[in-house]
Amino acid sequence: MLSRVADSLYWMSRYLERAEHTARLLDVSLQQLDQRPGDAQRRWERLLAGLQSTVADAEPLAITASLTFDAGRGESIVASISAARENARQVREQISSEMWEQINRLYLHVRSATMASIADEPHGFFRSVKEGAHLFQGICDATMSHGEGWHFIQAGRAIERAGATTRMLEAYVLDRGGMLTQSNDDQAWVCLLKSCTAYEAYCKVYTATIRPERIVEFLVLDAYFPHSMRFAAETVQVATRAIAAATGTAQAGRVDRLAGRLRATLDYGQTDEILADLRGYLATLLQLCVQIDAAIYQTYIAYPADQALSA
C-alpha cells in the first residue's frame, strides 16, 4: 500500500474520532446541572483543558460555538470533520463508496448547521454528529476489506481515543492538584464518566457509588470497555501487528516494542501504584501514545529513503 494512502486512512480515522469526542464533551457539559455556583465555570475549564484548548470568552455558549463551528480551530467539530473528509477524498478509490458517501453526508450536515440553527436543541445536533461517526465506523467494518488499510484506520482511532481519554483524566486530576480525594463533588466525576460514555458501563461494574479511585481504575484498566486506555492499547497492538505482518517490514520492531510496552504498562498496572503517582503514570501513557504515533509515521510513511534502500 502507498505510504500516502496509509497516512490518509490513519488521519481520516483520527480526525473523525476527534470530532466525535468534541461533540460528546460539549453535549455532556451543556446538559450538566450544577449544585453550587462556580461548578459550571470549573466544568468548562476542565473541558477546555481536556481538549488542550483556550477560548477567549469563557462563556458556555461562546465556547460551544467556537468548538463546534470555528474552522480555524483544529479541535472544532467542523474542522475535524472537514479534515477527515479531505483525507477520505484523497483516497476515495481505496475506501468503499458507502464510506465516502457517509463521510460526505456528515460533512455536508455539519457545514450546513449554524449556531442559530442548533441553539434551540443542541443535544439533537451533537447526537447526530456522534451517530454519524458511529455509522461511518459501522459502514467501514461492514464494507471495507479488513486488510492493511483497515488496520491503519483502527490504529488511528485507538491512538486518538487513548490520547483523548488520558487528557480528560489529567484535566480532572490536575484540577485537584494531583490528589484524589473523596469529595462531595460527585457531579464532576459523573461528568467525567459521561464524557467518556462510561457512566452506564461503570455503574454495571461498580454500582452507582461514585469513588474517584474506581473511576480512574475503570477508565484506565478495564479490559472490556471500548473507551478505556487498556482497551485502546490492545487495539493498537493488534492493528500494528497486522500491519507489520502485511508489509513484512523489518523496521517494524520499534512500533511493536512501543505498542507492547504501552500494553504491558496497562495489563500489569496495579491500581494502588498508579494512584500513588497518577500524574506521572498518565504522563507516561501519553508519551507512549505520542511515541507510537511517531514510530508508525517513521516506519511506514516518512521513512528515510537511504535507509530503505540499504535494507
Binding site: 500500500m1 502507498l2 500516502r4 511506514y300 510513511i301 521513512y303
Partner: peptide
Amino acid sequence: VYMRTTAGL
C-alpha cells in the same frame, strides 16, 4: 524511480 509504500520502496 521508486514509490514509497508501507512495505518499503
